[in-house]
Nucleic acid binder design. Structure first.
Length: 560
RNA sequence: GCGCCUGUAGCUCAGCUGGAUAGAGCAACGGACUUCUAAUCCGUAGGUCAGGGGUUCGAAUCCCUUCAGGCGUGCCA
């Protein structure tokens, strides 16, 4: 509809210019939008205002000329008017909205999908939590945002690749191994002291017990170094399995699990360092190797190889991001927790340094999650082991509620996640509000079948009965269709701005419109045409609700 | 100190990238179930968009500044 109106305006403007009523045929960019208030019509444009300069005319004068050329013969327009400082408001004929419904039936699960991504290869890397402990709610937020963004991009025709980067090299993995090793010894009755840096959560004990079950006393038959190293590998593998399981319960899976250790073993880290050394953008100081990130926009230079010869996490990351781009991705999107924001300039520096376009690299920073119970903060501390895991949160409030709550906020705002609120099945918890629409419509359709009220056509018939269609004319019904017509652009903007919350809010709004309609009008009536028309409408609503929930990874139940 | 993020109704949050009278939900108050699921709906009330300046036809939105909160500012990850 917006496209149609835009074209009408452009054609009219061109004609006005040809007849010398406009001073220029260079028109400024103008907006086509839906006014907040119904009194301002269905669609409005600021064309006249933004073109005051190009035409050297008063906005209202421009508007007058324009609507004269738009005329009244368009099949979709009921009337036009000029309002306020020069808005042009269009009132659309109710019947002009009907094709939206046919479109929904025709495209079905792919209604609203587009190819604006043009098959661009896009990688979304998210979660990527260290396998040194269970996921917590903060990881959950990144996981859900990343997954939903990936899904939305796919719906817009991007060729999307989901990746999890496993930090399975480096000191923290050794520490993990040591923690498990010490816990094993303790389980065997030895007195051991845990160094402060060791992980002490219950999961360490679980892994130690699993290890003992599989390997019995083997760890004492080898050197301690060898034992710890084995424990590291064993524990990391176990943690990855657990992480995969949690993510599975959230409906999240990855195309690739990328191992840092494998990256190191491949020699890519070494070779990037060498390459940068040759270009003299890596230099030696204080027995360490430094990357001149400051030359590429960072605050100061960063260490890539420590004075003890170990390379840093950053060194791997340079090679990793290089490798991503070498794999041919047009755009790489990293989803990080806000506490990593200091890393952006240095990664960007590494990308610029290697001659790539920094615009290919995008970071979504999800702000921290405060876990509460009845308004009281739940303490979180990884080393101490005193924390609630993501798995526990999901078990308590359910996958759908967790996903939806995380998605009803802009990822940039800090999030208070209250476990008690999340469990409530009230409107504090809008996931049920939206799902209820789906269940209600399923219920109506069941009843319609029971009572033989489906009519002579199946509801899903695209070539729908004209008489039935014409019965759709209540204001609430037209309102619903207008809302359904906005779904495609909601997908597009959610994907373009990588803001899945837009879809969540869209669904809540649509749900509100439906619930209001439901309370005011009966779908199943004694009039067969009316009943058929309304069934056709609500079935379309149900499809859109289901499609939208699916994009957000939330289920659409047939009964609640 | 510097950098990033945030500040909108009592609470939790939107506000479509500069548009018309700033919107929802919760909480409060008053109504609607013999009829398709009341996990719903209808209504009332609630605002100096943190404060101040600027940009222009027009600012919650852009710029400057002050204040408040969070995070970061490692040869940790």
């Amino acid at each position: 509809m917006k496209k149609t109106i835009r074209q009408l305006i452009l054609d009219a403007a061109q004609k006005a210019f040809e007849n010398n009523e406009f001073n220029s045929n260079e028109f400024a960019d103008f907006a086509i939008e839906e006014p907040k208030s119904d009194a301002h019509g269905d669609i409005a444009t600021n064309f006249a205002m933004v073109n005051a300069k190009t035409q050297k005319m008063a906005p209202r004068k421009i508007a007058e000329i324009l609507i004269r050329y738009i005329g009244n013969d368009s099949p979709v327009i009921e009337k036009t008017e000029i309002a306020g400082p020069g808005f042009i408001n269009f009132f659309i004929l109710p019947a002009a909205w009907y094709p939206v419904l046919n479109d929904i039936y025709e495209k079905d699960a792919e209604y609203g999908f587009s190819d604006i991504g043009k098959g661009q290869k896009t990688q979304v890397e998210f979660v990527s939590a260290n396998p040194t402990g269970p996921l917590h709610v903060g990881h959950g937020r990144g996981a859900i945002v990343g997954d939903s963004v990936a899904t939305l991009l796919s719906a817009c025709g991007y060729d999307v690749h989901r990746e999890y980067y496993i930090n399975d090299a480096g000191k923290q993995i050794q520490t993990l191994g040591l923690s498990v090793f010490l816990r094993c010894k303790q389980l065997d009755g030895h007195t051991v002291e845990f160094p402060e840096e060791c992980y002490q959560g219950d999961y360490i004990r679980d892994i130690a017990e699993e290890l003992k079950q599989e390997k019995d006393d083997w760890i004492y038959s080898v050197s301690e170094d060898e034992a710890v190293s084995f424990c590291s590998k064993f524990a990391a593998d176990r943690m990855i399995i657990k992480i995969k399981n949690v993510l599975n319960t959230l409906g999240i899976s990855f195309d690739n699990w990328y191992s840092e250790q494998a990256l190191v073993d491949s020699g890519k880290v070494e070779s990037v360092i060498q390459k940068f050394k040759n270009r003299e953008i890596i230099y030696e100081k204080d027995d360490a190797l430094w990357f001149k990130t400051e030359d590429f926009g960072d605050e100061k230079d960063r260490v890539v190889v420590r004075n003890n010869g170990q390379s840093t996490y950053f060194a791997s990351d340079i090679a990793y991001h290089q490798d991503k781009l070498d794999r041919g991705f047009d755009r790489i999107i990293d989803v990080w927790g806000a506490d990593h924001h200091g890393y952006i300039p240095r990664i960007r520096a590494s990308i610029t340094a290697s001659g790539k376009d920094e615009k290919q690299f995008v970071v979504i920073l999800t702000q921290l999650v405060n876990l509460l119970r009845k308004g009281v903060p739940v303490s979180m501390g990884k080393r101490s082991g005193q924390f609630i895991t993501l798995q526990e949160v999901i078990d308590e409030v359910g996958k759908d509620a967790v996903r939806f709550i995380f998605l009803t906020r802009h990822y940039e705002s800090p999030l208070d996640f209250d476990l008690e609120v999340a469990k409530q099945k009230t409107n504090d918890n809008p996931v049920y509000y939206v799902q209820y629409v789906h269940a209600r419509i399923s219920s109506i359709i069941r009843k319609a079948r029971d009572e033989n009220k489906i009519g002579k056509n199946e509801i899903t018939d695209i070539a729908f009965d004209k008489n039935a269609m014409a019965m759709i004319r209540e204001p609430e019904e037209i309102q619903l269709i207008k809302h359904l017509a906005r779904y495609p652009e909601t997908i597009a903007s959610s994907a373009e701005y990588m803001e899945p919350h837009r879809m969540a809010f869209y669904l809540m709004d649509l749900a509100a419109d439906f619930h209001a309609y439901y309370n005011k009008h009966r779908v199943l009536t004694e009039d067969p045409d009316l009943t058929a028309g309304r069934l056709y409408l609500i079935f379309a609503v149900q499809k859109v609700i289901r499609n939208g929930l699916t994009l957000l990874g939330v289920s659409a139940p047939d009964s609640m």
